[in-house]
Design a binder for these strands. Structure first.
Length: 877
RNA sequence: GGGCGCUUAGCUCAGCUGGAAGAGCAUCUCGUUUACACCGAGAGGGUCGGGAGUUCGAACCUCUCAGCGCCCACCA
């Protein structure tokens, strides 16, 4: 017996354990069925589940479960990411609590500590994914720093290097002074701020009483100035080109050069050039072969190339201004709106910084990655995201992949006395070096590690065993679909495309489903600092994982952000309760007691009706899932379960179950059980827990629900829905009339019906059902009976329903009701007439549309006549 | 500056190929019934941001105006 109440806590975790233990998540490799695979976007190994994960993984699990039920060979490949910067930061923060830095430990010991930390806290998010119901094949769990994946990283690195697609260069890069590492363009976030614009002047060398006027937001960088630029088209300043000026404080002579970077309209028209600390100036410096003076230490304090060595940039700025004022060179300071780059992890100001770094030739790799999407080898869903993808790929810059961190894949680069060697391991590197030099030489390994996204870029094939030609790789690559958020398109999707096209010559996934962000109830972005985050674990605790999942699915309309809504999640918990109670109803009525009943043989109208509706709902869910229309799919099940099965079918079965027609009872029991099973099947991908619990408790089963067959190509005929559809409409019409007339539910009424012979017969045949649900004691043909003024009337299609009220009719109210009805009818009739009198409409619109319009007009005319009749009847009361 | 979206019921949002405007929540009225009050029945509520155009027909296509948002680049 089912418990009286739906209580997800009772069974969700138990069910999951059973699934996992039974190997239900593992593909049957012996099967020759079509393969379906998804690689999970690997969460940070030390991360905890947030609502974004809940959405992302719910969608994946729906696709995985659906395809598994379709009988495919299904793999959901799970794993975690070492998340270089993020993880290193966490561990360093922990060390800081003990007053230690990573340097106190040294590289080796520090890395050991990180592994230790990973061991401790690394499992959290995977446990949480289990709680959500994610049916990943955990036996294949991978980690981006696993031996196998590390080997893949080294192999592809060497390959790229030898193909000239990885190179080292001294370039200006984004430098994070807190982490003391280079970061990529994508890891820099630009923030609007109100800063200051400083106007001051540099004296000319040949006449110190003449000046060139400068405007800058960063006066402290002047010690790195190696020129001042003006535009050759600047009539006011071009006479200065070729002269020199004196850099105050430093007292260094620098040239005034002509360069179009200097916009006559901006600032003073003259711009100081600091090639080592500004991306534009760097380009100018290259054009004019200017010296590049680095003025910063790696922690962004000023270095000995400046008079203010050791000061922070802020301190140096204050000092510089003071000095300039003393020298009488300072002119004015204005507020100035500007954008300042911050590190997305560290949150500190990013400095353009000249260092040796390693780059991937992304522009070259982008060519194939672009083509594959262009040729639809990989398709974005929704398709608009390919515009974002192309836009970025078309403007792609070399990708800085070296990080001056300790936690990550150390680059497989060794330096000999004057040679750089790239091999997969030390032995090979040594051998190559020895051969090159003709003797044994000492090698020094590059200390930089790789950007985390380098190894994630290989995820689609490295997790499947590459570089080995494994069975899994052969079977599941390319994967079927990648599900991720739009914020990851550049970081990950694009990199995976480039890496996969380069190494595998095939796309990593055939489809890429992009979803939006989960926001808070007011549509604001969730963030810890705002304090508006909601922990999915708490939601699951409160409403169950199924409710949260269903919320995610039903809210997911392609590509749009989702606003979290507690009331909606609660609503889906209620939905699960509703289903639970419907199942209890079936249980109480011994629906599962009927053996050997073939659903193809149903005879009775309500059963034929619900079978047809169930098939319709199934098709609806199937079609929508096939098109990644999660909300439509979820809503189709919801609507069928609650709106059709519970609200109508169960109500319709009651008079049968409470009656004494055994044949009817038996067939209805069997049908109810069949429909409930069908519901459990099509709802399972969305709500795997409650459906499984019910599946297992209602009767003994030959198959587990997780592997139950998804109904496809059903051969039995299209059952007649018309009879019950008519009854439903009829009942609704009577109920509506009762409510409008304020008739108490206890009052049993008689309804007389005027309709065509066919309709009449149809309705009378369902007499029992209709009377029960519409609270009538009698349903009879009007026949030749005279319509009295005491009858209230309503129309439903071409059927007129008349209910005698024996003196209780409030004629004024009734007149008002009828008049209102008449008004609507007239309005509609105007519309029909306007259309049908329009010759163009009649001649140009498809025949079907015209016919439908005519039918509506005829029906409305008929109804109008009936209403007018009724009004006439009570005119004098 | 470049790109991409959004504006539909009080709220949050659906509406896929143009053919009588939908859901959930909220609101109002009423509740006979052992599946369910985490419930049932009924109802109200929309010039589909403004304007113009294409079309027999526009929430949907085109143009335009207004407001909002996101991404990328840049601002001495």
């Amino acid at each position: 017996m089912l418990e009286k109440n739906y209580n997800p806590k009772e069974f969700e975790e138990k069910i999951y354990e059973k699934w996992e233990k039974s190997g239900a998540f593992q593909p049957d490799m012996r099967s020759d069925k079509e393969a379906f695979s998804i690689v999970i976007p690997p969460p940070n190994v030390t991360g905890v589940l947030h609502m974004g994960h809940a959405l992302d993984n719910t969608l994946q699990d729906i696709l995985i479960r659906y395809n598994r039920m379709l009988g495919k060979k299904v793999l959901w490949q799970p794993g975690t990411d070492h998340a270089g910067i993020a993880t290193q930061m966490v561990v360093e923060r922990n060390l800081a609590k003990q007053g230690l830095t990573r340097h106190d430990l040294g590289r080796e010991k520090f890395i050991e500590t990180v592994w230790e930390w990973k061991k401790q806290s690394g499992g959290t998010i995977c446990k949480q994914l289990r709680r959500l119901g994610a049916s990943c094949d955990w036996s294949r769990e991978r980690f981006t720093m696993d031996e196998g994946l590390s080997r893949a990283v080294r192999k592809i690195f060497v390959s790229l290097y030898k193909d000239g697609l990885i190179y080292k260069a001294k370039k200006l890069v984004n430098w994070d002074p807190a982490l003391e590492t280079a970061v990529s363009d994508l890891e820099v976030v630009q923030k609007e701020t109100v800063g200051k614009m400083y106007y001051y002047k540099y004296p000319l060398e040949d006449n110190p009483n003449e000046f060139i006027h400068i405007a800058t937001t960063r006066p402290e960088t002047m010690f790195g100035d190696t020129a001042v630029a003006v535009s050759k088209d600047n009539p006011k300043l071009k006479h200065l080109i070729g002269k020199n000026c004196i850099l105050p404080i430093a007292n260094r002579v620098i040239p005034i050069i002509a360069d179009d970077h200097a916009d006559p309209e901006k600032g003073t028209g003259a711009v100081k050039i600091t090639p080592a600390h500004d991306f534009n100036d760097f380009e100018v410096g290259k054009r004019h072969n200017l010296p590049m003076i680095n003025i910063l230490n790696s922690n962004a304090t000023l270095n000995e190339n400046t008079p203010y060595a050791g000061m922070t940039t802020q301190e140096a700025r204050v000092k510089t201004i003071e000095e300039l004022e003393k020298l009488g060179l300072m002119e004015k300071i204005e507020d100035h709106p500007m954008v300042i780059p911050y590190g997305d992890r560290s949150g500190v100001v990013i400095e353009p910084y000249m260092t040796d770094q390693w780059f991937v030739d992304a522009p070259k790799l982008a060519v194939e990655a672009r083509r594959a999407v262009h040729d639809k080898e990989m398709e974005f869903v929704p398709a608009v995201y390919e515009k974002t993808y192309f836009e970025w790929m078309n403007n792609i810059q070399p990708w800085c992949i070296s990080r001056q961190l300790w936690w990550g894949h150390q680059m497989p680069i060794w330096y000999g006395p004057d040679e750089t060697i790239c091999e997969e391991n030390e032995e090979e590197a040594q051998a190559a070096a020895d051969k090159h030099y003709g003797k044994h030489v000492e090698l020094r390994r590059e200390t930089d590690v790789l950007d985390t996204w380098f190894s994630s870029g290989l995820w689609a094939f490295s997790t499947l065993g590459w570089p080995e030609a494994t069975e899994y790789l052969k079977t599941f690559y390319p994967t079927s679909v990648l599900v991720t958020g739009f914020d990851i398109i550049f970081f990950w999707v694009a990199r995976m495309m480039m890496m996969s096209m380069y190494m595998m010559k095939r796309v990593p996934f055939k489809k890429c489903y992009i979803h939006g962000l989960v926001r808070d109830e007011q549509g604001r972005k969730m963030s810890k600092s705002k304090g508006n985050t909601v922990d999915p674990m708490e939601t699951i605790e409160k409403y169950g994982a199924d409710a949260l999942r269903f919320f995610m699915a039903s809210s997911e309309t392609q590509g749009r952000d989702i606003n979290l809504s507690d009331s909606r999640i609660q609503g889906y918990r209620n939905f699960a309760t509703k289903l639970w109670n419907a199942a209890r109803f079936c249980e109480m009525n011994q629906c599962y007691s009927v053996k050997d009943f073939d659903i193809k043989n149903v005879k009775f109208p309500i059963n034929k009706w619900i079978v047809a509706k169930a098939k319709e709902a199934t098709k609806n869910v199937t079609d929508n899932l096939n098109n990644y229309r999660f909300s439509d799919a979820a809503n189709a099940v919801y609507q069928f379960v609650w709106g059709t099965f519970c609200d109508w079918y169960i109500e319709l079965t009651k008079p049968i179950f409470y009656g004494d027609n055994d044949e009817k009872i038996n067939e209805t029991r069997a049908t109810a059980a069949w429909v409930l099973d069908r519901i459990l099947i099509i709802l399972h991908p969305f709500m795997p827990f409650v459906t499984t619990e019910l599946w297992n408790n209602l009767t003994t089963r030959k198959v587990d629900l997780i592997k139950a067959e998804w109904p496809q190509h059903e051969v039995f005929g299209e059952e007649d829905k018309r009879v019950i559809d008519r009854a439903v409409e009829f009942i609704s019409a009577v109920r509506s009339l009762r409510a409008a007339m304020n008739l108490p539910a206890v009052a049993k009424l008689t309804a007389y019906v005027k309709a065509s012979d066919v309709d009449l017969a149809t309705l009378i045949a369902q007499n029992n059902l209709i009377c029960n649900l519409a609270r009538l004691d009698k349903l009879a043909p009007l026949g030749n009976m005279e319509i009295s003024k005491d009858m209230v009337q309503t129309v439903c299609r071409d059927t007129t329903i008349l209910i005698p009220l024996k003196g209780v009719v409030d004629f004024a109210a009734e007149r008002e009701r009828l008049n209102k009805e008449l008004e609507t009818l007239n309005k509609n009739l105007d519309g029909y007439a306007r259309k049908l009198n329009n010759k163009e409409f009649v001649s140009k619109a498809p025949e079907k549309v015209v016919a439908e319009e005519k039918r509506r007009q005829a029906e409305a005319l008929e109804n109008k006549a009936k209403v007018e009749e009724a009004l006439a009847r009570i005119a004098n009361f």
